[in-house]
Nucleic acid binder design. Sequence first.
DNA 1: TCTGGGGTCCTAGGACCC
DNA 2: TCTGGGGTCCTAGGACCC
Length: 427
Amino acid sequence: MSSCNMNIIESGTANAKKEKVILHIDGDAFFVGVEIAKNPKLRGLPVVTGEERGIVSALSYEAKALGITRGMPIFKVKREFPNVIILSGDYKAYVKYSTKMFDIVRRYVDDVEEYSIDECFGELTGLDKPLGMTYRQIAERIKKEVNEELDLSVSIGLAPTKVLAKVASNWVKPNGLTVIDRESAPDFLEKVPVKKIWGIGPRTAEQLNKKDIITAKDFYDKDIAWIKLILSKPYETIWKELHGISVMEINSESKTVYSSLQKTRSFHPSTNDKNFLWSQISKHIEEACRKARHFNLVPKKLSIFLKTKDFEFITALILLPSPSNSPEILLPLVHKEFEGIHKRGVLYRTTGVTLLDLTANFVPQNDLFESNAKALKFDTIHKQIDSLEEKFGKIVIYLGSTKNALDYRSQDGGTESEDLDKNLLFL
DNA sequence: TCTGGGGTCCTAGGACCC
DNA sequence: TCTGGGGTCCTAGGACCC
């Protein structure tokens, strides 16, 4: 692995035009990292977040050392690890730190893809000359500034493709900086299980394992023709990216176009209470519509689902006579379908709503037919309500059918509901 | 063991048409 | 009457990601 000392990433000179350089930056135990940045007294202690969800969503390295894992039920953590500090997620803070972290990357890199709240890709290709630094030095600088300014630890990978950059950032954690180039890739991949490669999940890994492909190097060593024969298109892409052939672009446009929007909610214990379940659906529809309006999108279809205590999905698909993001229009259409899938005596753990086939909202100005009048009226009302809510920064108005769901939310200790209760208005 | 919430993309197969 | 071959579009469902 030391053979890459004089490669393009280190020297920043040769063949800069030919080979891409992609940076991947990944927050170390990000949610917990932010909690420690907010409250440095937590540093060095076993800390987990996720109390509000009932399962561990992030954990400090000290907590990991005790044997705690992501997804572990909180009650189990309390029972078996009484000394662990358990926190509720502070999502607003995570977004704030995330934004600041990406802003630091943007000091050096124009093309930044915000992949998730704690990860981004950056296109470094050709930036060495103008910045007067090697690629490694750029990465080091970014890392240092995130460390010092945000008190956050991150791990960085540099490689000619996104998939290899992900391998690299994951190589040394926490606080790592790893370079992988085309020549050194096989040495790394030899030590990575195939299921750890970005895009290869448990199903495909199992299928590959059966064919004696255990490490990422085994996958790398196969013929592309073989990959095409056995697997589908995305895996060809992965194969090429592992070979240092860049196929996946950096997508730096910020996310304003969704093809679907989903709202779901689980509750424990599971319940058969029809009014309660319906009010959950109602709330989901209201919230999904609110978000759709915010992005000026309308769905052509939507689906609702119930998940039983035994994790069985029951879904219903509703095709809309005309696209709409007004809950008043959608709710009556959905209610019938809900009645159809809800069964007596079955316990349900989750409800969900997905708005599908979203397209840009277009309200025809010169087309005021009778059938449109009602929709337009709601459209106008929502515009006013939305601007009211944006002004006050809170969700203040719900439909009456949603009331049950909000009552439940204020019982279960969610932090979000406390400031809501005082300001709620039901239509 | 118990399993949250929010997304994307791809493919197989059916419907429909010529 | 019984029949071929080929195209497009849509949908459900699977698999993946954080």
